[in-house]
Write a protein that binds this DNA or RNA. Structure first.
Lengths: 240, 240
DNA sequence: GTCAACAAAAGTGTCGGCACAAGTGTTGAC
DNA sequence: GTCAACACTTGTGCCGACACTTTTGTTGAC
């Protein structure tokens, strides 16, 4: 996924001094907007790890004052997406080997908890269609090699589970490591046979959820993450 | 604990309105400094939940420009310690009932993981003196009603476990909910018999760690948090 | 030809000020 | 005496400008 350096000309009006009058409510991007955009670029690797983020450059691209970019960068730094050295600027953090495994340990604990809570708080039949999805269509997607759609669907399931868990603090923490997991999932899933193994584990977890067996759902989810981590350790020199 | 890193040699011109009286005329505090100070005040309840944090007021107290206070408040908001309503200012978030229980679910998953990792990465004898501490002296402290010292010692153990777990991402997440747990621990421990029960559970966990039984250590730690949560639910109308 | 010292440029750190919204006190009518 | 409208005060949102630091490019000596 080569990253075409944004030609996005964004020819905002030359004079940013005006605007803000009664006209449009949002002529320029707000700090949260900028945060989301930059976060997305980093998660999708549109901005490569190690790349420098120049404040002036970004300010020109988005047509906003530099201080606003600065605030967005501060938020990014808080999230650990970039590191800023004094007077040196902000660079996108590259995840090293050790951090990758640390994140998998975290996912095991957090997503296991999410599976348990979701099972406890939802009626078992709520997961019926998800079981069906993973039993049939998802298998076909893998067989056809359409991993992008598969990942997309899986992400939807993941979000539904988090929502069902109804724990904002948990959701926030999973959100913090979201970018990292995005990258890792795509690297692991291309390993030989891994996608199908993962699907089987998701299916088993979902069936436990449909039975209303929260403890078993948690155990299975954790087991799934653990094998994913093991796969990653085994093939680490190929994928990292 | 202030961990001031930056030399802050920036020669400042004629101080505008000179340094305020609140602090001495020493070099002005950096944004991380301000963050830590305000965080400490909130954690120790020196600033009550629901209190308004006025930017100009804080700027005057610390003798720093208001923008710097502003940055610190933004960091506090990111951490969820304050909420800022547009043009209304920042107020300290008061933790409501539901969030309290959510945090205990989180602690169960995270601290359980920490116990497991710590056990795996350290030689069993590393925990020898902690076992001894919880077997004797800590029991005496509780008997004497010196809960402050007990909590202090427990915090030290907690930090050692996190350090031994050697997972920065996990440490970061436990740090995020640190303030909240600080408050909650002090509210739970005063409940009848609770301190002694907690000590017994910590002791059991530590003995598993000394045996090198990581899985059992995780299970026991989680069980401990679960009973703490149950106690909280039982007495919630007294302590919240 | 190489290296070091110097100068220019680029980029970030910091700050003060202005604009606008919400809160508060006052005044007048009824 | 009560209430509503208005002006004032307080405090935050936002932004441009300047100071400082680092990097890059150039020139001169050895």
């Amino acid at each position: 996924m080569a990253a075409r350096k944004a030609p996005t000309t964004t020819r905002r009006k030359a004079a940013p001094a005006r605007a803000r009058g009664g006209a449009k409510g949002r002529a320029s991007a707000s700090v949260p907007d900028l945060f989301q955009v930059l976060r997305g670029r980093i998660a999708s690797q549109a901005i490569a790890p190690g790349a420098k983020l120049r404040e002036t450059e970004l300010a020109a691209e988005f047509g906003v004052p530099r201080t606003r970019i600065r605030d967005a960068l501060a938020a990014l730094e808080q999230r650990g997406l970039v590191v800023r050295e004094p007077n040196r600027g902000a660079v996108v953090t590259r995840l090293d080997l050790s951090q990758v495994f640390h994140i998998y340990d975290l996912r095991e604990a957090l997503e296991g908890l999410a599976a348990r809570l979701a099972t406890e708080r939802m009626p078992p039949e709520h997961w019926q269609k998800d079981v069906a999805l993973f039993k049939g269509p998802m298998k076909d997607l893998i067989a056809q090699g359409d991993l992008d759609t598969y990942i997309e669907q899986y992400e939807l399931l993941r979000l539904r589970i988090i929502e069902a868990a109804a724990n904002p603090v948990l959701a926030e923490m999973l959100d913090i490591i979201y970018e990292k997991t995005q990258v890792l999932i795509r690297r692991i899933i291309i390993l030989p046979g891994r996608a199908e193994i993962g699907r089987g584990q998701h299916l088993a977890t979902l069936e436990a959820m449909r039975r209303g067996d929260a403890a078993e759902a948690e155990r299975l989810r954790r087991e799934g993450l653990r094998t994913a981590k093991a796969t990653l350790e085994k093939y680490q020199r190929y994928v990292l």
